[in-house]
């Protein structure tokens, strides 16, 4: 990330404002000042991001050992157990099942959400679309609704007796699908996340579409390209980086789904306490008081997320900071 030309650019003005001309003052302005200004950010980062991660890793290699009957002080102590918690976590069929569910959930959610977001963004950007302002705001609006509240709203909409869908199905004399049953609840939750996320992703893509100069389209038009050709052959490739970024963010959000299934649990009996990996971590840590295996499981989830981060870093560093000096 070091940009060589920035070094020369910043180095020139320094002598001009050097007061005493000593090396100490230049060290101060070059090194101490920026670090002093970065201190709040760095301290908060270390305290609330780095330290918890280090602590979780430490806990994941520990275990409580009970000696004798486990009575009296000193009967319980924390010991180092190596990878035992990891082996146990990875071998746990509940964990494997929760990962499987989350992968299926991501497979359903991410393509549907981003496909719709891209479609909406292209339509908003197309010529001749009417009421585009209204549609844009309406589709973006769910982003303002917390996941707990949207799960609550959709949960009621899925509930037979309250739901308008059941009303329609009843009127037509059909058997309504039970969205809160174990077969379909995954789709029900994916729908809640899609509802909350499609607008945000649409706005991200629409913003990058707006940055493209129109002349490109005019030229394509003169060559006889249709509106659809322009959308698929020119607009989509141009905003491809946005699509990649939103996909990555969505994938990461998928891995940590927690609020939606937790909120729906009182309304459905097909959601176990280990329905997603994070719900299992929560249960292990707080219901079963097994913080060590909870720590091991969350480290596994974090590592999986980190794999995606590296992909992200590569893309961002190539694209984002060309304009700095």
């Amino acid at each position: 990330m070091t940009i060589p030309r920035s070094r020369t650019a910043a180095a020139t003005p320094v002598p001009a404002r050097r007061r005493s001309g000593g090396g100490a003052s230049s060290f101060r302005s070059r090194v101490l000042t920026p670090y002093a200004m970065l201190a709040p950010g760095i301290v908060l980062f270390l305290a609330f991001m780095a330290a918890p991660i280090v602590y979780a890793v430490y806990l994941s290699f520990q275990k409580t050992q009970v000696t004798g009957l486990g009575l009296g002080s000193g009967a319980r102590k924390q010991v180092f157990v190596g990878f035992e918690n990891y082996v146990a976590a990875l071998a746990d069929p509940e964990f494997a099942a929760s990962i499987g569910r989350v992968l299926l959930y991501g497979l359903v959610l991410v393509p549907a959400m981003l496909g719709l977001a891209l479609l909406f963004a292209l339509l908003l950007d197309a010529r001749g679309t009417r009421a585009a302002g209204f549609s844009r705001v309406a589709i973006f609006l769910p982003y303002a609704v917390p996941a707990v509240i949207s799960s609550l709203l959709w949960g009621f909409l899925y509930l037979p007796g309250v739901s308008p869908f059941y009303f329609v199905f009843d009127a037509l004399g059909w058997d309504a699908p039970e969205i809160l049953s174990s077969d379909l609840v995954l789709f029900g939750i994916a729908n809640i996340a899609l509802w909350g996320g499609v607008g945000f992703n649409m706005i991200v893509m629409y913003t990058s579409l707006k940055a493209v100069p129109t002349e490109i389209y005019e030229a394509a038009k003169l060559d006889g390209a249709s509106e659809v050709d322009i959308a698929l052959r020119i607009k989509v490739p141009i905003i491809a980086p946005s699509i990649v970024m939103t996909s990555l963010f969505s994938l990461i959000a998928t891995l940590q789904v927690f609020a939606e299934p937790t909120t729906l649990r009182p309304l459905s009996n097909s959601l176990s306490t280990s329905w997603t990996p994070l719900m299992k971590v929560y249960r292990d840590a707080f219901t079963r008081d097994d913080i060590y295996s909870a720590a091991a499981t969350s480290v596994v989830i974090a590592l999986a997320t980190l794999l995606l981060s590296f992909l992200f870093l590569r893309i961002v560093q190539k694209r984002a900071f060309g304009q700095e000096d």
Partner: peptide, 17 residues
């Protein structure tokens, strides 16, 4: 890198700290 370490995964170790 912190962008992609989701706050949700930090929450449980943060609790213990």
């Amino acid at each position: 890198m912190g962008v992609l370490v989701p706050g949700v995964i930090l929450a449980i170790p943060q609790y213990f700290l």
